[in-house]
């Protein structure tokens, strides 16, 4: 472990995870995706079916994770919750990437006043700390899953734009870009066909790590009641609905979905860091 001192330290520590940890995390993520896709077949119960004779049941053979305050099966709800939770984070990241990569590439390509203007815009975005920008978007356009995703996407876009700009600047300094330019290849074509594909390997690892953060932020919004609405079993919303039980000493309905969020986030972080290592080596 003494080799560690040579590299950048913080990076080295998170990267020395054993291979089995990586495969375990990959497996957990796969499980979450399978749950999201096959929810209708996998879930033992209807996630919204209430059973007032079985409120707040402890885990049992019939209900592996127990039931919540309305007698709904928590396992089924968690399985069905995978879809809105994961899809939300994917949509948020897709939107943020589209906006961020566009801004970042244009800024790196054009430089000059375009770059300055875009830097100003991202500065203003950065002036809204954390969830605040999303809260503004939600206050304006009312709550709902779409607003939450778009608002959060706008909040994530500046980070991605800054990152893209920095790697795009490096890429554009390479000789092949000048070579293409001398051959008369147009700016847009050159960016889309040559530069962007070369940026993707670096970008993907970064995006996977951001995915965990996005999932967590989105869950926080849903916890506040600004995103998905009942009867959805999105994980953040489940935590909020289970909050009442915690005070009575019944922790399952709130903490099981909370734990699931945590596991998925840890798994994406491990996978993302490993992935960006591998992809960076290739590039």
């Amino acid at each position: 472990m003494t080799i560690e001192a040579h590299g950048p330290v913080a990076v080295a520590t998170t990267r020395k995870a054993a291979p089995w940890v990586f495969y375990l995390c990959l497996g957990l993520l796969g499980l979450a995706v399978v749950a999201a896709v096959l929810a209708d077949w996998l879930a033992p119960y209807d996630p919204s079916a209430t059973d007032f004779s079985a409120l707040y049941q402890q885990p049992s053979a019939a209900h592996w994770f127990g039931t919540d305050q309305l007698g709904r099966d928590i396992l089924s709800r968690v399985i069905h919750g995978a879809r809105p939770s994961l899809l939300g984070a994917i949509a948020l990241l897709a939107f943020a990437t589209a906006v961020g990569v566009l801004i970042g590439t244009v800024a790196a390509w054009k430089r000059g006043w375009v770059d300055t203007l875009l830097a100003r815009v991202t500065d203003v975005m950065f002036a809204f700390p954390g969830l605040l920008f999303v809260v503004l978007v939600i206050a304006v356009f009312d709550r709902g899953p779409a607003t939450a995703v778009i608002g959060m996407g706008l909040a994530f876009a500046p980070v991605i734009a800054k990152f893209t700009r920095s790697i795009a600047l490096e890429e554009m300094a390479r000789p092949y870009v000048d070579a293409y330019r001398l051959q008369g290849v147009g700016s847009v074509e050159l960016c889309v066909r040559c530069v962007l594909p070369n940026l993707f390997p670096t970008l993907i690892g970064y995006l996977v790590v951001l995915f965990g953060e996005g999932l967590m932020s989105l869950a926080a919004l849903n916890f506040l009641g600004f995103g998905a609405q009942p009867p959805s079993s999105e994980w953040g919303l489940m935590v909020q609905e289970g909050r009442g039980g915690v005070i009575q000493g019944i922790v399952g309905p709130a903490l099981i979905p909370g734990l699931v969020i945590a596991v998925v986030v840890v798994a994406t972080n491990v996978v993302g860091v490993r992935l960006s290592d591998k992809l960076a080596v290739k590039a």
Partner: peptide
């Protein structure tokens, strides 16, 4: 610290309530 960083703070808050306030 890596683990704590990956748990949403509202979940941490509820765990604290469950353990230190309720139990």
């Amino acid at each position: 610290t890596t683990f704590v960083n990956s748990v949403p703070n509202f979940v941490i808050g509820l765990v604290l309530v469950a353990v230190f306030a309720v139990q």
